[in-house]
Structure formats: C-alpha cells, structure tokens
Amino acid sequence: MYEVFWDKVKNRLNSSGDKLAGDVHGGFEANGIVIFNVLEDAIKAEKIVKGNGLECKLVAPPPALRKGCDLAVAINLVEKPLLERILSDAVPYVHILPLEGSRELLQIVKVQYYEKHIMVKAANMKITYDKQSGRIVNTSGGGCPDIPYLHLQFLGKKLTEVPYPKDISYTLCALMLDRALEECISLWKREEIECCS
C-alpha cells in the first residue's frame, strides 16, 4: 500500500519536474524547506500552502535535512511566520529551515540605552520606546513589505497594546520585530517592578 502511494508521489514529482529542493522549476525558486515526519503530511501541507496563495512545491529533501520522510515542501523562507501560522493547526511538521545549511534564527538581541529611551535590536529590526510611558516612539530597519505597515501600527502605542508581529505578519523581518518587541516588554516590566518595589 505504502509503495503504491510512494510511486504515485514520485510520478507526480517527475511529471511536475520537481527534483531536489533548491532546483528551479516552474518559475518558483525556493530557499527554504518544511520537513515532515510523515509523507501524507507533506502532501497535505502543499495543498494548504498553495490554498493560501503562497508558492511552494513538493520536493525530495536534501539528505542532510531529511528527518522522517522522503518528501518535503520547498518554500520562500522569508514567509516563515505566515507558513508557521497556517500549518500549525492543520498539519504536523518537524522544522522550517533554510535550504542551505541548517542555520537557526538569530536568538540574541542588543539593547541601547538613551537618556529617555531604550532601543532593542533583533537582527535587522529595532524598536525604541519611552522609558517612562512604555510607548513605542520609533521602529527602524528591515526591508520586507510588512515593516512599513507595522511601523505605522506601532507608533505612539504602548508596548503592551500592540499585537505581536508573529501573530499578524508574514515575513522574517516581522519575526525579528517580534523578537525585539518581546525583549522590550520584558525590559519594561522589569523596570516597572524595580520602580515599584
């Protein structure tokens, strides 16, 4: 039964021209990959991703990234936050990774202190807030298309009043803005506790 299913999948890969992830076919060039434990999940995920208007393709994962099954979904890595959101409730997956290497997302942040403000930097994204009020006075950096929108949404609002970018946005820049926001909130709450204790 499994062999018959796998043969069908291989035929589909061959007919659509898909080979190993990283190759260019059908006008879509991937730089990220979603890894699955179970073959059926990869097929289900491809339908879900395409159903949400994103480009993807079924591929055989490179050996170094192979975890459970011989089928993966190649994606545009920059859309990782949106992919996580649409897949998380629908189909179990193991990882979303860059195709080249197995680099993890940058986890650390930098903090810069000014007289009345604090700037937190996560990768290419920065949030600056007012120490007294906890209001966001600026966001800067980045290059993906949700960043100018989030800038307008965040300006003048309290750190605790804005939505987490990972819940509403689409791209890796937004995910880094999310990291910065988490750190800002953590710093802000710590300062409130110190101030009031």
Partner: peptide, 11 residues
C-alpha cells in the same frame, strides 16, 4: 555566506 536573510546571520 550562509545567511538567506538578516534573520539568519550568525551570532
């Protein structure tokens, strides 16, 4: 050389 996006730059 390995970073696909600034979110993946090495520490």
């Amino acid at each position: 050389p390995e970073a696909e996006h600034p979110a993946y730059i090495s520490r």
